[in-house]
């Protein structure tokens, strides 16, 4: 319990740091000097330089709506998994998330890429991030401390699209799974390294190599589109390859979700030890008949496969009659 408190305190400090950064950022006046272009006096003839045009930011209330929707989607995800225990509902949520966070919002702002923005904001005094990015980054971590990787399931657009293409999952051998799983921590370290570099060499690698964002936008570099398509084709047979082996935010979430007390649970008190749930899990997240919080991606397939869950129960003898 005290460990969880320490983690929550750490999260709070980071959030406060980002908010302070944000407040400071609001106070800064920004103007790009136009010096290199021909000036009015050089052009002559009464020419007036037009005002510097900046793209308008997304309206504030829409940004707040985005954060609210993110929070609501995670709340619904937790509710479906903990209370409703239904795969069908979760698929509906997944489709909605791909539609909104993916194709409508075009995969941005996402917590995965915001790792680097938050890192830069915390290390570089000249860099500021808006409140929306702060909230987007920390909300899923906060939820993970209590309920595990609720964000991964039906909320994350990148995860959701892979979730939907999964057709015929093969079980990745455990050793290989573990070894590949380490890649995401390497990626996380590289992302942080590229973020703390001085501004000139800084590189937002996570967003640059986001395999699905160009699919959501239906435009982008050909190699990124091909990479995204490749991940999706691979994802038809290997469950969510990006989430499990590459996603740096997945690495963070799996650390935080170790503290989670609730989440996907295999029918306590009425299980049959039949192992159908472990067979159904495409992510190898069920070990010894228990869902492993740090691996569980909230897809609820185990519920769908369980003879003791949902509509199938009706086909069975009432619970009292079978010991």
């Amino acid at each position: 319990m005290s460990r969880r408190r320490a983690v929550l305190a750490l999260l709070a400090v980071c959030v406060l740091g980002c908010l302070a950064e944000n407040a400071q950022g609001q106070a800064l006046h920004y103007e790009r000097p136009v010096e290199r272009a021909p000036q009015e006096k050089d052009i002559g003839g009464g020419y007036v330089t037009p005002k510097v045009q900046k793209p308008l930011p997304r309206r504030a209330w829409l940004e707040i709506l985005d954060v609210a929707l993110l929070a609501a989607a995670m709340g619904v995800s937790v509710w479906i998994v903990v209370k409703r225990r239904s795969r069908r509902w979760l698929v509906a949520l997944t489709v909605a998330s791909v539609g909104y966070f993916g194709f409508y919002r075009e995969g941005c702002v996402c917590p995965i890429g915001s790792i680097q923005n938050v890192t830069v904001a915390l290390t570089d005094p000249n860099y500021h991030i808006p409140m929306v990015v702060t909230a987007t980054f920390f909300l899923p971590l906060l939820v993970a401390v209590f309920y595990g990787r609720a964000f991964c399931g039906g909320v994350c657009a990148l995860g959701s699209i892979q979730e939907l293409v999964l057709l015929k999952p093969v079980q990745v051998p455990r050793r290989l799974d573990q070894a590949l799983g380490l890649l995401k921590y390497v990626y996380l370290a590289a992302a942080i390294w590229y973020a703390v570099l001085p501004a000139a060499q800084r590189d937002f690698v996570i967003c640059r190599f986001d395999p699905f964002v160009s699919l959501f936008r239906r435009s982008g570099f050909a190699h990124m589109l091909a990479l995204g398509a490749g991940f999706l084709v691979l994802g038809m047979f290997v469950g969510r390859p990006y989430c499990r082996y590459l996603c740096p935010y997945g690495g963070l979430l799996s650390w935080f979700s170790r503290l989670a007390a609730r989440g996907v649970s295999i029918t306590p008190n009425k299980e049959l030890d039949c192992g159908l749930c472990a067979e159904a899990c495409p992510y190898g997240a069920i070990e010894e008949m228990r869902a492993v919080r740090r691996k569980c991606l909230y897809c609820a397939r185990c519920y769908a496969a369980c003879p003791r869950e949902g509509p199938l129960v009706k086909a069975f003898v009432p619970l009292g009659e079978v010991r």
Binding site: P307, L312, A315, F316, V317, E321, V322
Partner: peptide, 8 residues
């Protein structure tokens, strides 16, 4: 798979 119903 066929649903396994424990028979009485």
């Amino acid at each position: 798979p066929p649903v396994r119903v424990p028979e009485r």
